[in-house]
Amino acid sequence: MGLTRLIANRIAFGLITLIVITLLISLALEALPGDFAEQRLGQSATPETIAAIRAQLGLNEPILVRYWQWLSNFLQGDMGISLSNSRPVSELLATRLGNTLFLAGASAIVAVPLALFLGILAALYRESLLDKLISTSTLAAISLPEFFIGYILVALFAVNWQIFPAISSISDNMTLGEKIYASLLPIATLTFVIVAHMMRMTRAAIINLMQSPFIEMATLKGLKRGRIVVHHALPNALSPIINVIVLNLAYLVVGVVVVEVVFIYPGLGLLMVDSVTSRDLPIVQACILIFGATYISLNMLADILSIISNPRLRHPR
């Protein structure tokens, strides 16, 4: 069937893309000034200690040889150990990935329905005061840098009114409720950042469709405006909306390092930044694979959902 083949195709291409990305990252990391040994020792480096570290970790091999070693181990399911503290990369990633997915998931649960709701509302009452209010406020929120929104929220809700904690350093021994409470401010920050994009797209796609003949037909049939928008316009507008939602979901996983820094949230972003700084290649590779795979699979999901939501694509002639 068409859809299955398409998916198989996309997965194959996705995997190739991932491999190419890891190779590029290896080369890019090698091109940066300072290698692992130099970054590790910093000012206290001596030629002898640098040589000792390089020898112990096999850093004297050319980058392509090291890349090949990494790749062959990885294909056998071994992600390697961190150069810095000899911990298994898989173990380092597990908690961090969980935290990142938790924050992304919680933010998505709040932001996506909110954006759709606001977008539909804005389309329904187009050019009204409500529409302008929604548009202006969400656009204002997206225009501010996320760390700024974060600091404002901390200043108001944590320092001034003392309702929520200023730092969201969640840990495994917290209950779900405690985790959600600790993460409320970063969730709010991320919601502010991504709502505008999705809401604008919802509004635009629906308004665009409202000019179509079948909407006119529905209007002539005497249907209520709300019913027209939700039952007739929205299903047809889904494809572009899904695309934007998925892009934003990908952002929630891979692009939130600034929010992590402001709220001390132990996510993947911080792990990746620390590892790039210290040139800890196995960790960087693992993070890149996760980020790359997230982007590729979410994009694939967007395409598949577009096809499913569109009968014309589902049953090509």
Binding site: V154, A155, V159, P165, A166, V262, I264
Partner: peptide, 18 residues
């Protein structure tokens, strides 16, 4: 020990008693 690399976040954590 909580690692807080951002100076403003450290101030906030101290002010809020965390």
């Amino acid at each position: 020990i909580t690692a807080i690399s951002d100076a403003a976040a450290r101030d906030n954590a101290l002010k809020t008693g965390q």
